[in-house]
Design a protein around this nucleic acid. Structure first.
Lengths: 119, 119
DNA sequence: CGACCTCTTTGACATTTGTCAAATAAGTCC
DNA sequence: GGACTTATTTGACAAATGTCAAAGAGGTCG
C-alpha cells in the first residue's frame, strides 16, 4: 500500500535548505518537496508552464492552452488545477475566460533546492 | 489513455535550456525533463538522495539505506534502480555489498532548467 | 561444497494518475 | 429570458506507481 501524499497545505513550506547539507531533509520536508516536484513531473504540465512563461504577460486562458498540448479541455483544466494547487500558477477570472499566470518564484524555489553545490 | 513516458534512452539529454525562454520547450524535451523530475518526485527517493549527499563519500549500500527510510529492502532496491536508471545515482558492487553514489551534476542539471530568471 | 549475507527479481495488490465524454456551472450578449 | 461561450466537475477506465513477501542471484568464507 503506497503511502499517499497529503495535500500541500499539510506539507511544510518550501525553504532554502538544499537537498544536501545539514540539517538533512526531514521526512516531512521530503513529502512537501515531492508534492511540488510531482506537480512538475508531467510533460503536459511542463509544456503548459513553458508556454505561459514565454507569453509577454506570462498568462493564458484554458481555451488558449488546450490547443497547445492537443488534449481535451477537461484534461487541460485538470492539469491547470494541479499546478494551481501547488502554487505554480494563479488563476483569475476575467469575463468569460479564466486566466492562468505563472508564479516564477515557486518554480525557482524548487530549482534552488536542487542546487547542491552552486549558488 | 495516458501516454506513458518512454525510457530515458529515448529522451533527449537534459540541456541548459531553461523552462522559460526561446526556443520554447519541445514536446520531446518536456518528456525528457518529466522523466527526470518524476524520478525525483517521491519522498522516499528524496530522502535516499539527501542521506547519500550527506555522507562523506556520497555513497551507501542498500542494507544501509533501507533502515533510513524504514521500508523493505526490495522496495528500497526498486527506488534505487529508478534513481540509477535516470542517472541520478551510480551503482558499484564491492564484495558482498552494492554501493550507490550520488551524481550531483545530474541533480544540478535538473535544478538549472528550473531557474527561470537567475543564474 | 555448503552455510551465510546482501541484493534484486517476480508476482501480487491497492492506490494514484492521466485521459475522455457527458453533464454542469459561470458569464456574456441579443 | 434564452442562446451562446468558456471552464469545471463527474464518472469511468486503462495504465503507472509504491509496496511487500517469497523466491532467486551473486558473492564470501568456513
Amino acid at each position: 500500500m503506497p503511502k499517499p501524499l497529503p495535500a500541500l497545505e499539510d506539507a511544510a513550506p518550501i525553504c532554502c535548505a538544499p537537498l544536501g547539507g545539514a540539517p538533512s531533509l526531514s521526512p516531512a520536508d521530503a513529502v512537501g518537496l515531492a508534492i511540488r516536484l510531482k506537480a512538475l513531473a508531467d510533460p503536459t504540465r511542463l509544456q503548459l508552464l513553458a508556454y505561459l512563461l514565454d507569453q509577454p504577460d506570462q498568462e493564458g486562458c484554458t481555451c488558449n492552452l488546450a490547443p497547445i498540448v492537443d488534449l481535451s479541455e477537461p484534461t487541460v483544466s485538470h492539469h491547470l488545477k494541479q499546478l494551481e494547487a501547488t502554487g505554480l500558477l494563479t488563476k483569475e477570472r476575467r469575463g468569460m475566460s479564466v486566466y492562468y499566470r505563472v508564479v516564477p518564484e515557486a518554480i525557482e524555489a524548487i530549482g534552488r533546492v536542487l542546487h547542491v553545490n552552486c549558488c
